[in-house]
Simulated assay, not measured.
Amino acid sequence: MNNKLTLNEIIIVGLFAAIMAVLSQISIPLPFTSVPITLQVFGVVLIGTILGRKLGFLSLIIYLLLGAIGIPVFSGMSSGLGAIVGPTGGYLIGFPIMCYLIGFGVEKKNNILFFVLAFIGVLIDYAFGVIQLSYISNLSLSTALVYGFYPFIAKDIVMVFLAAFLGLQIRKRLVKSLSLKLS
């Protein structure tokens, strides 16, 4: 098995890290919580669906590294290690794991498994996010759920379906037109 990335794969990983940075800027702050409404879950599902587990995971690691070194790619043009270890950093940390699960599901070419893993991935991301929000903000777990889970889950269920549908269409076209091996 060749672990080296081709030039096309490197370009695609960078492109999708940039797409994630753009989608992260579509952010609506809420007055009652430090967690904004964003298109980040949409972005992670889209990336995992299109790129699969290896390239999708790598794309989100690049996104996190760019933010960690100070490039303002996180929501609200934030960046730095403070964003990753801050109240909403758990969601960021969960993104590559979520993406890997989604990519694994799409590579198995089983739509039921794909959607189950997409929703498990979102729940894992929420678990990372809510636990870190609770710990950093000194909130009880039930209060952290009120601030970091309940206001967002309905939107994110819709985002999973939209991103998965769009991602599957784009994935088919990329494989066909660029002769990419996205699995």
Rank of each mutant, 00 (worst) to 15 (best):
N3L: 07
F128L: 12
V158H: 08
M77W: 10
M20F: 06
K54H: 11
I136M: 08
T33E: 01
K54V: 02
L117Q: 08
T33W: 14
V73M: 06
I102C: 09
A144H: 11
I93Y: 01
I136R: 13
F104T: 00
F119D: 01
L178T: 07
E9P: 05
I19G: 10
G105D: 03
E107N: 15
F74N: 05
F95C: 03
F32P: 10
S75T: 13
I28G: 13
I93Q: 04
N3P: 02
P36D: 01
L46M: 05
D125M: 13
I136S: 12
G82N: 15
Y135M: 08
I11A: 15
L39R: 01
D125L: 13
L55F: 14
L39E: 07
R53C: 08
P87I: 13
N110F: 02
T88H: 07
N138Y: 15
N138D: 15
V41Y: 12
G43F: 05
K109D: 06
G48V: 00
I157K: 12
S177E: 11
G56M: 04
I11K: 10
N8K: 14
L55P: 07
I61K: 03
L113M: 03
A21Q: 04
G167Q: 06
G43R: 00
L15I: 05
I47Y: 08
M159D: 03
I124T: 09
P87A: 13
G90K: 07
G70T: 07
G52N: 03
G129H: 11
L23T: 00
S34C: 01
A68L: 11
